[in-house]
Design a protein around this nucleic acid. Structure first.
Lengths: 198, 198
DNA sequence: TCTGTTCTGGACCGCACGGTCAACATGTGG
DNA sequence: CCACATGTTGACCGTGCGGTCCAGAACAGA
């Protein structure tokens, strides 16, 4: 019973995500959020709590999405684990190649802004990156089993290296570095993992 | 002529750097800056212009310092270019290994927060990273000349990869990842460059 | 239809924000 | 020692902040 909500929670969270993504946590005001979501303050506070709590919801949702996306990609229809890994790095290069101002990964931005002062954000970041590493490791192992990666490679170590390169490419993308830089980083990383280029 | 300044500009910039570094641009208020610098608003505005201008001064100075530091390190007293590169990555691992909340590189934080919306920040970031790449490339070439890096490596490509790993390690450090992750990333990157581990 | 419950919209709060300004202090050059 | 140029201080300004609250709207169940 009671009056039903007029808004769709998912849609509101999507709008809020967009806003925080563009302006960061400190750079986003409640007014911005009200405009983006078309909700009054009362509804916003009633449904999500204060700005901090809403941000946490947004960040958690974003991390879940990104993790799910990566998991889906890595178990995708692509023929081999090796080609899926290559596709992943190709996508990272392509993301940085598009012209215009770049909007980096929300998780990267949030970690840079808040991880040092907000334990919850730090935990979420750490956990998400750890999951990334695990997924990459599984993929390396799979490629190894298929004979596309030499057996002498330590999958965990390799995954950690690939993760670092991916995050580094993200950072270089933020700075608007040339595509060639990203290309070089991606190719060298894949080579180091033992994956020959097509 | 006129009344002389009571403060040391370098000292003030150092304090302002500290403040922006801790809280980011949007997260730092004029009050924070006044407290940190012990200057009144008038002096701050008279000497540096508005908050935005002061931030740009701070960021430019930081980039200059970091670049000079890297340049100095890479032309340091260490015996070989190879060992200097190893020391560089060791330092990056060590930076992430210290306990407690991590405060990432100011340039990384500023790029994440502002590069998409502030052209001057984006230009500075891009330029600084490009300089990093150039310095790394020179070092790889030097190591190659000394026979510590195989001659078939493309120095530019290798430098781009090393740069990506360094920035990635920075990002993982922000998130508080285990030292072993950084260690793996660093070791694998150096190996990929053709540098054997000691 | 009436009651209880929830949701909505916006008025309202105190505060701190970024920024301006004018009165005053402190030097230098003549 | 005086006139001038500059630096300092902090009061002041309008605005927008994050957050609270409540009167009224919109439903479900009796």
């Amino acid at each position: 019973m009671g009056r039903p909500r007029k808004f769709d929670e998912h849609q509101v969270l999507r709008s809020a995500t967009e806003t925080f993504w563009t302006s960061g946590f400190a750079g986003t005001s409640l007014g911005d959020l009200m405009r983006a979501t078309s909700l009054g303050k009362g509804s916003l506070y009633g449904a999500f709590g204060d700005k901090q709590a809403l941000f946490q919801r947004v960040l958690d949702g974003y991390c879940a999405n990104v993790t799910a996306g990566l998991r889906e990609h890595l178990s995708g229809p692509d023929s081999s684990a090796a080609s899926r890994l290559r596709a992943l790095f190709d996508a990272a290069v392509a993301a940085g190649a598009s012209p215009g101002p770049q909007r980096a990964c929300l998780l990267a931005k949030s970690t840079a802004e808040l991880a040092a002062s907000n334990a919850e954000v730090a935990v979420r970041a750490r956990q998400t990156f750890t999951t990334f590493a695990d997924l990459l490791q599984a993929e390396v192992e799979s490629a190894q089993a298929a004979g596309d990666v030499p057996g002498d490679r330590d999958p965990r170590r390799t995954a950690h290296h690939l993760l670092a390169v991916l995050r580094g490419m993200e950072a270089l993308t933020e700075a608007g570095m040339d595509e060639s830089v990203l290309r070089d980083a991606a190719d060298t990383a894949l080579e180091a993992a033992g994956l020959d280029q097509a």
